[in-house]
């Protein structure tokens, strides 16, 4: 068991936790948090699995670096939409989740 493999396994668990959160949680800001956890899990799997040997591999490092910046862009856009929704309707849920 190397630390690369260990963090890859943690990444799988984080990804699954994030997916379950995105599906099950109706409150939109928390759904954004779950989406970010999903992203972090995917990044850990990418870098962790590439690290099973001894030397780090720069290619997944660069991919994850790109991914982190794109994730913050997605988060900002999602927050803008949530704030707009809240300003227009006063809700933090999508209309189809209101029945739950």
């Amino acid at each position: 068991m190397t630390s690369g493999l260990l963090f890859a396994l943690v990444g799988v668990a984080l990804f699954a936790l994030g997916v379950a959160g995105v599906v099950l949680i109706a409150q939109l800001p928390r759904r954004i948090l779950a989406f970010n956890l999903m992203g972090s899990g995917a990044f850990l799997v990418l870098v962790g699995l590439a690290q099973r040997g001894d030397l780090p591999d720069p290619v997944p490092h660069a991919m994850v670096l790109t991914g982190i910046v794109v994730a913050v862009a997605a988060t900002a856009l999602a927050l803008a939409l949530v704030r707009r929704l809240h300003a227009l309707t006063g809700r933090l849920q999508l209309p189809e989740d209101d029945g739950d």
């Binding site: 630390s3 963090f7 870098v47 660069a62 994850v64 982190i68 913050v72």
Partner: peptide, 15 residues
Amino acid sequence: RLSAPDIALAEAAIG
């Protein structure tokens, strides 16, 4: 710990 200092810098500042 995964010896990825580039990502660590970006995660601390952005993430």
